[in-house]
Simulated assay, not measured.
Amino acid sequence: MYIQIKDICFSYRNSKEKTVDKFCLDIDQGEIISILGESGSGKSTVLRLLSGLETPSSGSIMINGKVMTDDRTFVLPEKRGIGMVFQDYALFPHMTVADNISFGLKGYARAKKKQRVDEVLELVNMQKFKKRYPHELSGGQQQRIALARALAPEPSLLLLDEPFSNLDADLQIKIREELKQIIKKTGTTSIFVTHDREDSRAIADRIITMRDGAAHDWDSICTVRGEFEPLSVE
């Protein structure tokens, strides 16, 4: 199993309730998983725990056989090899598209960095925009650049937090299919969280429904609240 999340628990400071409660999930390499849930269900917190932005109180996370966190180990966020696409895209406004993408390519030689920037710009069909600034791009274009930046270092795992929330309905439908094609082309294992069931159905290989900080996978031995919904073919 490429990713193993077992019995993860987490509570925010001054909260009496667990935000994430014995969350368990196994993911195959190259699989796209959607965590579907309402606001406050704990789905975005799961991404923060995976990325290392928060530390669980108990449980373990393994990626490709390497422990990211357990009761003895905690790998720093920058050492995890995880790419993230944030809800607001988080592009640097004072940097060009090319500079935004190359920012995360630490340790690359200059020629290799330029080559990789060109590769991911071609992947998201944005080669013509490499010298533009974020404010010169539409919402859909900014999202593609944010995706290119996250994919540039060839992450072991891609996390997307409500990736369509800032797009209008028509663009949202168009971008869904583009996003799935791009991720599948790279073969990157991905998890995206959303409150929109149609987003989940359009992109995910599996949908995990999250409630009260927990999810249930039919193949899991964990006893938790929630439900698992395999993606139906209609």
Rank of each mutant, 00 (worst) to 15 (best):
T189I: 07
L137H: 02
L160R: 05
R197D: 03
S51C: 11
K106R: 15
S58I: 04
Q127A: 06
P153V: 02
L121W: 07
D217Y: 13
S200P: 01
G213R: 10
I82D: 00
K130R: 12
L76M: 13
R80K: 05
F86P: 04
Q4N: 13
L36P: 04
M68C: 08
S11Y: 04
Q127F: 02
N64D: 15
I3Q: 06
G52C: 05
Q142P: 04
S200K: 09
M62I: 14
A215I: 15
A109F: 04
A204V: 09
G52K: 12
F92C: 06
S51V: 01
L160A: 04
E38Q: 13
L160M: 15
M62D: 07
D161T: 12
Q141T: 07
T69Q: 02
E234F: 01
N166G: 02
Q4D: 14
Y133R: 14
R201V: 12
E17W: 01
D212E: 14
S39I: 08
Y12Q: 06
Q115R: 14
L171D: 02
D196K: 06
G104L: 03
E78K: 10
N64S: 14
L159I: 06
L231K: 13
G83N: 10
G213I: 11
G37K: 06
I207H: 00
D219R: 15
V120F: 03
I182C: 09
L50S: 05
I101W: 10
K43G: 02
E17C: 03
D170H: 13
E31V: 01
M68H: 04
M62Q: 12
L50C: 10
D205M: 08
G226Q: 06
K22L: 13
R225F: 12
V75R: 02
V124T: 03
E177S: 12
A214Y: 10
K66S: 13
E162I: 00
A148R: 04
L179H: 06
K18F: 11
N100M: 07
S165F: 06
P56Q: 08
D88N: 15
K6W: 02
S34P: 09
E229L: 13
K16D: 14
T69N: 03
R149D: 10
L25W: 03
R116A: 08
A148M: 02
E229I: 14
E229R: 08
E154Y: 08
Q181M: 05
S220H: 09
I173F: 12
Q29V: 11
Y2N: 07
L105N: 09
E54G: 11
P153T: 02
V193I: 15
S11P: 01
L151D: 00
E234C: 02
L160H: 05
S165H: 05
Y89E: 01
A111E: 15
Q87D: 08
S190E: 07
L160C: 13
I203G: 12
S190R: 13
I3V: 15
P230I: 00
S57H: 10
G65Q: 12
M126L: 05
N166E: 01
R206M: 09
V20A: 06
D168C: 02
D217V: 15
S58Q: 14
S58D: 14
T194H: 00
I82R: 03
Q143N: 10
L123P: 11
E227A: 11
S138V: 07
D212V: 09
G59W: 08
